[in-house]
Nucleic acid binder design. Structure first.
Length: 490
RNA sequence: CGGGGCGUGGCGCAGUCCGGUUAGCGCACCUGCUUUGGGAGCAGGGGGUCGCCGGUUCAAAUCCGGCCGCCCCGACCA
């Protein structure tokens, strides 16, 4: 193959970049650390967005939109929040450009802003500033809102989709009258994320709680879903935060309860980003390129016509169009590639690189025998199958691919999840095998920091479903309430 | 922020060490014919201020000085 991607074994990092670029998901942009999301990549994001948006609406949320710019003083209001984000903010200081004596374009000193504006790294502050106006009474609660937006975090080190300076995401921001209700909301939305990851993206995830050091800046509690990539590194795929009354207090957001008493509002926020595309790639794709789960593929089936002369071309295309129509009628997303400029062989390779789950090849031979050639992207199996019953067969196969991808990822995760009881064993697994490691931890930040320092592994989460199994910290021997999940992470 | 790499038609590169015809190759692109079941063949054609600025020289992609940009790898982070 002329345009092969680097193999995962020889250079995982280069493989990832090759997949992104050769599947035409994204390009580098002229701006350092930012990317151009190409139509193939954006189509994926659109499908994710549509699906998630439906799940948000189904759980009672509405969309709104807040400004890209946040007044600098807002960010300063919540102490931990500033501390967490101050290091990575883009700051707008001027409102126009002008030419200097050397004819160079510079920010016009005359136009210096009275107050700097921050390009949002997240929107809690500006939203809670407004919630303070919207909320007076317990009757105004809850507020269940979400926004689809871009945010900017000035990163040192970037990687396509996984960490770029600007990225697309959704951020849900809810306000509640009680702590219980807010906690429940944070849990509900984590569940929505987990469902989405597993049922649509075919990515098995561990649901859990972050330790204090990994918590969102300004949150009381951060819940997360963690996924394991093919190279044995963990990736945080979504977070949901119980914010307590931190932002309500910072922005003086109170309501009057049933007893006419003033109370601070309880809050949550939750988000997933285009980073999920990175997770998708690193979960399912192979050395032939992208592999997409059928539920998220823009094109679930591509039809490649094969012919040797004009007469055959007419005949084959007619047949191909008929099949296309049948599939379309059955709500299968299908593309017929009748482009005359590329040969079938070229198309086969191209659609494999782009991860289209199923390919139908149809040529004179097939027409004669009422067959088509059906090729699966995930297993790379090819079969000659009868046209009779094709729609049902394709529906079944798509389901099979979707389930198979999840199953395969789940098995890989299980195979790369190790339970250890000694620090030596821990270091050995982290160093040589990677993956998730279940081990006892004494619950202190000091121990957590030392482990990270010495091994590079962090506590990904305290899993919700961990066994009730007290023990002793592998490092300090102190009491541990149960095992936590360690891994090296993206 | 440290370490490494790279900057030459749209893309990938060679040429740079050791200065010297008209800057070359593959892919892509355009035209034509033949082709089409796993990245087609032949013929013809178009496209470059060699990242930028300065210096040395009869002569600079090549040597010297400075600057800029991007990518990769590590520490911090969705």
């Amino acid at each position: 193959m002329a345009d092969a991607v680097t193999s995962r074994e020889s250079d995982y990092s280069q493989w990832y970049i090759d997949v992104v670029r050769k599947a035409k998901l994204a390009d580098y942009s002229p701006v350092r650390g930012c990317m151009v999301i190409r139509p193939n990549g954006y189509a994926l994001w659109e499908r994710m967005k549509e699906t998630l948006d439906g799940l948000f609406k189904a759980t009672g949320h509405e969309n709104f939109y807040f400004p890209l710019f946040i007044p600098e003083r807002f960010l300063a209001r919540e102490a931990e929040h500033v501390e967490g984000f101050a290091k990575e903010c883009a700051v707008v200081t001027h409102s126009r450009l002008t030419l200097n004596e050397e004819d160079e374009l510079i920010p016009d000193p005359e136009s210096k802003l009275e107050e700097n504006l921050i390009v949002r790294p997240t929107s809690e502050t500006i939203i809670w500033n407004t919630y303070a106006d919207w909320i007076q009474s317990y009757r105004d609660l809850p507020l269940l809102y979400n926004q689809w937006a871009n945010v900017v975090r000035w990163e040192m080190r970037t990687r396509l989709f996984l960490r770029t300076m600007e990225f697309l995401w959704q951020e849900g921001h809810t306000a509640h009258a009680s702590k219980e209700e807010a906690v429940e909301e944070a849990e509900r939305m984590l569940d929505v994320y987990a469902t989405f990851a597993e049922d649509y993206m075919a990515i098995p995830v561990v649901r859990g709680r972050k330790t204090a050091s990994e918590r969102f800046a300004g949150a009381v509690d951060t819940l997360c879903i963690e996924a394991l990539m093919q190279d044995g590194k963990a990736l945080q795929a979504g977070t949901s935060h119980f914010l307590g009354q931190n932002f309500a207090k910072a922005f003086d957001c109170t309501y009057t309860d049933e007893n006419n008493e003033e109370q601070y509002v309880w809050a949550t926020s939750w988000g997933v980003s285009t980073r999920l595309i990175g997770a998708l790639i690193m979960t399912h794709s192979d050395d032939q390129g992208l592999v997409l789960p059928p539920k998220l593929a823009r094109d679930q089936v591509v039809i490649v016509p094969i012919y040797f002369n004009d007469e055959q071309r007419t005949q084959v295309l007619e047949e191909a169009q008929r099949i296309q129509q049948e599939l379309d009628d059955a709500d299968i997303r299908v593309k017929l590639d009748a482009d005359d400029n590329q040969k079938p062989g070229w198309k086969f390779n191209e659609y494999e690189l782009q991860g289209v789950p199923l390919r139908i090849g149809i040529g004179p031979r097939d027409i004669e025998n009422d067959n088509v050639e059906l090729a699966r992207r995930d297993t790379r199996e090819k079969n000659i199958v009868p046209q009779d019953g094709l729609v049902a067969r394709i529906q079944d196969t798509l389901t099979d691919i979707q389930d198979g991808l999840f199953q395969q990822a789940l098995e890989r995760r299980e195979a790369h999840t190790t339970t250890v009881d000694s620090y030596d064993a821990f270091k050995d697994v982290i160093e040589n095998e990677g993956g998730f490691v279940k081990a006892h931890w004494d619950g202190t930040e000091a121990t957590e920091a030392r482990i990270q320092d010495e091994t590079g592994a962090t506590i990904r989460c305290i899993p919700f479903d961990r066994d009730d199994e007290p023990g002793e910290d592998m490092l300090t021997g102190e009491h541990s309430e149960g095992r936590v999940l360690f891994a090296k992470a993206y």
